[in-house]
């Protein structure tokens, strides 16, 4: 009786056994990539707001400091979103007839809050605190990217746990002098890791990786 399968099928079956492992590996890899993708983390997607507020204009163009609007970022966990009155400090005289700004004026007249859409939203089981990061020399742009070039705000980082931990394990790679924390123009110098090591000592930066730091 002749063989049902030709000998060459032996190789084929061996390859398909290996192939199966690779296909499995590929699926796992694809799943991990998908989870870390901008689609899943909502990073780099500009968010449409009721008023098309532009950091590009206000920060990049006019040079207004973050703290003019985000007043509580230095001493609170929450950075603060400016109340309508802060906009009216200037827009009581500037662009007073622009239809784009009507929701702002209406909010000011009626004392109803403007409903900004959150751009960043950590899960509620994570504790985050701005004041400690600012005080220890982590700049806004390290986490929020080039905000002075965002016509509409987007989330720059993935905000996944691995992202937080990467910096908590190696703060020397990200820390900058305190005087530069609010600067949007700061570029890390070539020897920034060396400087970083000194700053870590000077600011007494600890490497906080215990779970209860962020899950409390």
């Amino acid at each position: 009786m002749s063989q049902v399968f030709h000998r060459s099928t032996n190789t084929l079956s061996r390859v398909s056994i290996f192939g199966g492992i690779f296909i499995l590996g590929f699926l796992v890899w694809a799943w991990a990539e998908l989870n870390a993708s901008n689609y899943a983390t909502r990073a780099k997607v500009p968010v449409n707001q009721p008023v098309p507020f532009s950091h590009e204009h206000h920060v990049g163009g006019l040079g207004i400091d973050c703290r003019y609007c985000h007043t509580s970022v230095e001493n609170s966990s929450f950075a603060g979103i400016p109340p309508t009155k802060t906009c009216m400090n200037c827009h009581s005289q500037i662009w007073v007839n622009a239809p784009m700004l009507e929701p702002v004026r209406q909010s000011f007249r009626t004392d109803q809050s403007l409903h900004w859409i959150r751009v960043h939203d950590l899960p509620d089981y994570v504790y985050f605190n701005h004041s400690i990061h600012v005080a220890k020399g982590i700049g806004c742009t390290t986490c929020h990217g080039a905000i002075d070039r965002m016509p509409l705000t987007w989330q720059e980082a993935s905000l996944q746990m691995s992202w937080c931990l990467d910096c908590h394990r190696h703060p020397e790679e990200y820390v900058r002098p305190r005087s530069e924390v609010f600067s949007v123009a700061y570029q890390p110098p070539p020897n920034h890791v060396e400087i970083g090591r000194n700053l870590v000592k000077e600011y007494h930066i600890q490497s906080l990786t215990s779970c209860s730091t962020c899950h409390r």
Partner: peptide, 11 residues
């Protein structure tokens, strides 16, 4: 449920 807990955070 754990991501969006029924608690108030600022704003």
């Amino acid at each position: 449920d754990m991501q969006d807990q029924p608690k108030y955070i600022p704003l």
